[in-house]
């Protein structure tokens, strides 16, 4: 995926000015301090805000920091909501929804409203919705933020399992270095309008530990 000459302004503040980046295939992490424009970059790729320049991503799915579920719709309807335009055949659509809910372990909760779910369940619905949407690229904006350690571990492993079954490019932003090195194939350390460094993690995700990649972690720390 290529971003060419991207410029973004919020009022008088310029966030990006002729910024270009080539994002490789696989799982890519955009790492950086708060306010450096990580979420803005995701929103540019998703075309969710006005910008100038060129982005060659076609269709994307998106996981927000919060699950962003429609409170008035059941779990099943929330997932189906984004598919109606893409998959016109109702039977086929329902099957996709039931399959993905089964994969994330929420088939029993399909008739529940978001208000009846725990935080972890709601985030699993958001994962299900993003993975069943037929996109070329999945964007995630700090999707594991605010989850407790056990829940985070479960959601991370669920994410990797879904990723392997529904292979597509993933771009996610975080300011958690451990999260970045455990998940990403490539890490871009971002500062205002520039890439400070690029790192590649060749070890398969299931074999990775924070200590096995401690050298990358130290290099990232040195940059931030």
């Amino acid at each position: 995926m290529k971003l060419n000459n991207i410029s973004v302004k919020y009022g008088d503040k310029t966030v990006y000015d002729n910024f270009s980046l080539e994002i490789p295939k696989g799982i890519t992490c955009i790492l950086g301090a708060s306010g450096c424009g990580k979420t803005t970059l995701l929103n540019v790729i998703a075309r969710a805000l006005p910008f100038s320049g060129k982005v060659d991503a076609q269709s994307v799915s998106y996981i927000f920091q919060s699950p962003t579920l429609i409170p008035s719709m059941t779990v099943e309807k929330n997932v189906e909501y984004v598919l109606k335009e893409q998959i016109k055949d109702k039977k086929k659509r329902k099957k996709i929804v039931f399959d993905i809910l089964d994969k994330v372990g929420l088939e029993k909760e399909k008739k529940n409203f978001p208000g009846e779910l725990s935080g972890g369940m709601a985030q699993r619905v958001a994962l299900a919705r993003a993975f069943c949407y037929p996109s070329d690229c999945l964007l995630m904006d700090e999707p594991f933020k605010g989850l407790d350690v056990t829940l985070k571990k479960n959601i991370l492993s669920l994410f990797l399992s879904l990723y392997r079954q529904n292979n597509r490019d993933v771009v996610f932003v975080t300011h958690d270095i451990d999260e970045a090195i455990l998940l990403a194939d490539n890490i871009f350390v971002l500062t205002n309008n520039a890439v400070l460094g690029t790192f590649n993690c060749n070890i398969p995700q299931e074999e990775r530990t924070v200590t096995s990649l401690s050298d990358i972690k130290e290099q990232i720390y040195a940059l931030l």
């Binding site: 998703a46 969710a48 998106y62 927000f64 919060s66 429609i70 719709m73 909501y81 984004v82 335009e85």
Partner: peptide
């Protein structure tokens, strides 16, 4: 919720379904 509106926009949900799926239930 602006995030819901952005979500619908990103997932290319048509405007009428955004109105009846998000706006109407939110203000009901």
């Amino acid at each position: 919720d602006k995030n819901l509106v952005t979500m619908a926009k990103i997932y290319k949900v048509p405007i009428l379904r955004r109105i009846f799926g998000i706006y109407v239930p939110s203000i009901l």
